[in-house]
Measured scan of single mutants.
Amino acid sequence: MGFKLLSKLLVYLTASIMAIASPLAFSVDSSGEYPTVSEIPVGEVRLYQIADGVWSHIATQSFDGAVYPSNGLIVRDGDELLLIDTAWGAKNTAALLAEIEKQIGLPVTRAVSTHFHDDRVGGVDVLRAAGVATYASPSTRRLAEVEGNEIPTHSLEGLSSSGDAVRFGPVELFYPGAAHSTDNLIVYVPSASVLYGGCAIYELSRTSAGNVADADLAEWPTSIERIQQHYPEAQFVIPGHGLPGGLDLLKHTTNVVKAHTNRSVVE
Score class of each variant (00 low, 15 high):
Leu81Ile: 14
Leu159Ile: 12
Ser31His: 04
Ser16Val: 14
Val257Trp: 04
Gly131Arg: 11
Ile84Arg: 00
Asp79Gly: 12
Phe116Ser: 15
Leu106Gly: 14
Tyr196His: 04
Ala209Gln: 15
Arg167Met: 05
Gly246Asp: 14
Ser113Lys: 03
Ile17Cys: 05
Val171Met: 15
Asp164Val: 13
Leu143Asp: 04
Ile104Pro: 00
Leu159Ala: 09
Val166Met: 08
Glu157Gln: 15
Pro35Gln: 14
Ile40Glu: 08
Asn92Thr: 15
Gly240Ser: 03
Ile84Gln: 00
Gly163Gln: 14
Arg142Gly: 10
Val112Ala: 06
Thr253Leu: 00
Thr36Ser: 05
Thr182Met: 15
Val237Trp: 02
Gly148Glu: 05
Pro152Val: 12
Gly148Met: 05
Pro107Gln: 09
Gly158Ser: 07
Trp55Ser: 01
Val45Ser: 06
Pro232Arg: 10
Ser16Cys: 07
Ser62Gln: 07
Ser56Met: 14
Ile58Gln: 05
Asp214Arg: 12
Leu10Ile: 06
Gly169Asp: 08
Ser161Pro: 10
Ser62Ile: 08
Val171Gln: 01
Arg167Asn: 13
Asn71Leu: 01
Val265Thr: 14
Thr222Lys: 11
Glu267Asn: 04
Val124Lys: 03
Val42Trp: 11
Pro170Gly: 12
Leu143Pro: 03
Arg76Ser: 08
Glu267Val: 11
Tyr34Lys: 15
Ala200Leu: 11
Gly78Glu: 09
Ser208Glu: 13
His117Tyr: 00
Ala66His: 07
Lys102His: 04
Leu5Val: 08
Ser205Thr: 05
Gly78Thr: 13
Leu83Met: 10
Glu233Thr: 08
Ser264Lys: 09
Val132Lys: 02
Leu13Met: 06
Cys199Lys: 00
Val187Asn: 03
Gly242Asn: 02
Val121Asn: 01
Arg226Phe: 06
Thr36Tyr: 10
Ile58Lys: 09
Asp79Met: 15
Ile17His: 04
Gly2Val: 09
Met1Ala: 02
Gln229Pro: 03
Leu47Ile: 05
Lys8Ala: 07
Leu13Gln: 10
Thr153Arg: 12
Asn255Ala: 14
Leu83Ala: 15
Trp55Asp: 00
Ala51Thr: 04
Lys4Ala: 05
Gly89Ile: 03
Asn262Asp: 09
Asn184Lys: 02
Asp79Cys: 13
Ala200Asn: 00
Leu195Val: 08
Gly105Asp: 15
Ala98Glu: 15
Glu145Met: 08
Val121Glu: 00
Leu143Ala: 11
Val45Tyr: 02
Ala213Gln: 13
Lys4Gln: 04
Tyr196Ile: 02
Glu233Ser: 10
Ser137Asp: 03
Ala59Cys: 06
Leu185Asp: 01
Gly210Trp: 03
Gln228Ala: 11
Lys4Trp: 09
Asp77Arg: 07
Tyr34Val: 08
His115Ile: 00
Val108Met: 11
Asn211Thr: 12
Asn149Ala: 09
Ser161Lys: 14
Gly246Leu: 07
Ala215Ile: 14
Gln228Met: 10
Ser223Lys: 03
Glu80Gly: 13
Leu24Trp: 07
Thr114Lys: 00
Leu217Phe: 04
Ala59Pro: 02
Leu10Phe: 13
Thr207Cys: 06
Leu173Asp: 00
Val108Asn: 01
Glu33Val: 13
Gln49Val: 11
Glu172Asn: 15
Val212Lys: 09
Asp216Val: 10
Gly72Val: 00
Ile201Phe: 05
Asp85Ile: 00
Val112Cys: 03
Ala15Lys: 15
Pro244Ile: 14
Glu172Gln: 14
His241Lys: 00
Leu250Val: 08
Asp85Met: 00
Leu185Pro: 02
Ser70Ala: 07
Val171Lys: 00
Gly169Asn: 04
Leu97Cys: 04
Leu97Asn: 03
Leu204Phe: 06
Val124Thr: 05
Val132Ala: 12
Arg206Ser: 12
Tyr48Gln: 09
Thr261Ala: 07
Thr93Gly: 00
Gly43Ser: 10
Asn92Glu: 14
Ser16Gln: 13
Met18His: 06
Ser70Cys: 04
Asp85Cys: 00
Asp214Ile: 11
Leu9Tyr: 07
Ala87Met: 00
Gly210Cys: 04
Ala218Pro: 09
Glu150Tyr: 04
Ala25Tyr: 08
Ala130His: 14
Arg142Lys: 10
His154Val: 09
Glu219Pro: 09
Gly78Ala: 06
Glu172Trp: 13
Arg120Pro: 01
Asp79His: 12
Thr86Lys: 02
Pro35Met: 10
Gly163Phe: 10
Glu39Gly: 08
Ala25Lys: 13
Glu99Ser: 14
Tyr34Pro: 07
His117Asp: 00
Arg120Gly: 09
His115Met: 00
Asp119Ala: 03
Thr254Met: 07
Thr182Gln: 14
Ala25Val: 09
Trp55His: 06
Leu13His: 05
Arg167Gly: 07
Tyr68Cys: 06
Leu97Glu: 03
Pro23Cys: 12
Pro232Glu: 11
Gly246Ala: 09
Tyr196Lys: 01
Tyr48Phe: 09
Thr36Gly: 07
Val126Arg: 09
Val75Asp: 02
Asp118Lys: 11
Tyr202Arg: 10
Asp29Met: 11
His180Arg: 01
Gly43Leu: 11
Ala111Trp: 03
Gln228Glu: 13
Thr14Glu: 10
Thr86Glu: 01
Leu247Gly: 11
Ser27Ile: 05
